[in-house]
Simulated scan of single mutants.
Amino acid sequence: MSGKPKLHYFNGRGRMEPIRWLLAAAGVEFEECFLETKDDLIKLQKGGSLLFQQVPMVEIDGMKMVQTRAISNYIATKYNLYGKDLKERALIDMYVEGLLDLYELLMTHNFQPADKKEQHLATIVDKATNRYFPVYEKVLRDHGQDFLVGKQLSKGDVLLLETLLMAEECKPDILAKFPLLQSFKARISNIPTIKKFLQPGSQRKPPTQEKDVPKVIKIFH
């Protein structure tokens, strides 16, 4: 049996993408088992692999882990992406939790009906530029280091970079007023493991296209 983590999800971003990012940042190779149909999901559910009947599910270290935050916390702890002590871990959690509202908006943007997309994008831009990005700009300024917390890469940095790149996909100049976030993006993107993940041909998933939405909905509904 392979020792690589095995990721069970559809062939797209969704709630698995932050887990892919963390594993890639840690330099961990992983396998993927894609759900193609509703029957694939039902088979996992009936086989007892999904504790709460939901994916993402990651097979790692003899466990079949579900719940995105539990999985990402385990990976971050295992691969030293969770700070050096309890205080740093608390800060990392705070910064990650603070991003989740914006992350959810970005993740669901392409699933919006055509007549609501423009308003949804306006909401993303408003929340990103007026509520969230100013906070992370201030955190970087106050901390005065290369990373959000401490002096080494953490899951907070990884999720922030992923969120920034998703935001730029929606609006390319969205970081125009945030010089420290621009520098952060360039710096973290150049970390060798992350740089590799950002190259074409990696296991990073592209934005969900409109043509793919019906297939994803069929699997999960």
Rank of each mutant, 00 (worst) to 15 (best):
K127S: 11
K215F: 07
Q67C: 01
K43S: 14
G156Q: 03
A25F: 07
I75K: 00
L121T: 11
I19N: 00
S189E: 08
D115K: 13
E168R: 15
K155V: 01
I174C: 02
M166P: 07
F220V: 10
K87L: 15
Q199V: 06
V158P: 01
C170W: 06
P113F: 04
I75V: 07
T163M: 09
K151T: 11
A25Q: 02
K205D: 06
F111M: 15
P207Q: 09
K185D: 06
V216Y: 12
P214I: 03
Y82H: 00
R187H: 10
E118D: 13
V58Q: 01
M166K: 14
G150L: 08
Q45A: 06
L86R: 14
G48K: 06
F133D: 02
S72E: 00
K177R: 12
H143A: 11
Q209I: 08
D101G: 15
D93R: 00
N130P: 14
L181N: 08
R20N: 02
V216M: 13
D115F: 12
T123R: 15
L50M: 04
K84D: 13
E17S: 02
A25V: 04
A70E: 00
T37D: 05
K117R: 14
L86K: 11
K211N: 15
L165P: 03
M16S: 03
R69I: 06
F197Y: 13
